[in-house]
């Protein structure tokens, strides 16, 4: 089954439950990690946009990594960062056109959304279902 992470900004109320869920899920040795998702003011009244990694097909972060620390997980489709291999050169942080590879200054490491390995915690904690992780139908390309 093909799962997709679906974001609906019009439902987001900016409660930041996703931030907390992300922070606690990715905690290292009981110290909270930097959140990979955050609702940012969308520029209109009562409108928040939960900004997180878009898992681009032609990802600039994968292209920018000179040590192959960033790889796509073929099952979840997420671009995952191997912290052991990462050399903290900040290439992906600078290259990402959406600013979704972030430097966690507390742990001194680069973090990015990995969809929690196939079960995003933020989607569980979103009270308004602005974030959802659900199966989608894959439409077959029609022959012209």
């Amino acid at each position: 089954m093909n799962f997709r992470f679906i974001v609906k900004p019009e439902l987001c109320i900016g409660c930041r439950s996703c931030e907390l869920a992300c922070s606690f899920t990715h905690a290292i040795e009981n110290v909270r990690s930097l959140t990979r998702i955050s609702p940012i003011d969308g520029g209109f009244k009562d409108l928040w946009v939960p900004v997180t990694c878009l898992q681009c097909d032609d990802a600039a972060c994968i292209k920018s990594c000179l040590v192959d620390a960033l790889k796509r997980n073929p099952v979840t489709g997420a671009v995952e960062l191997n912290q052991e291999v990462c050399v903290n050169c900040m290439a992906c942080v600078a290259a990402c056109p959406f600013g979704c590879a972030i430097l966690d200054t507390q742990h001194d490491m680069v973090v990015k959304c990995d969809l929690c390995g196939g079960d995003p915690a933020c989607a569980h904690f979103c009270p308004t279902k602005a974030l959802e992780w659900k199966p989608i139908e894959v439409k077959k390309k029609q022959a012209v």
Partner: peptide, 26 residues
């Protein structure tokens, strides 16, 4: 990688993304 990707910091990129997505959502 296009050089203009490097011309903004990660935070400003995120703000830019939220503004664009915000227009669509609105």
């Amino acid at each position: 990688i296009p050089f203009e990707y490097f011309e903004k910091c990660d935070e400003c990129h995120r703000k830019e993304l939220s503004a664009t997505m915000g227009k669509i959502a609105n």
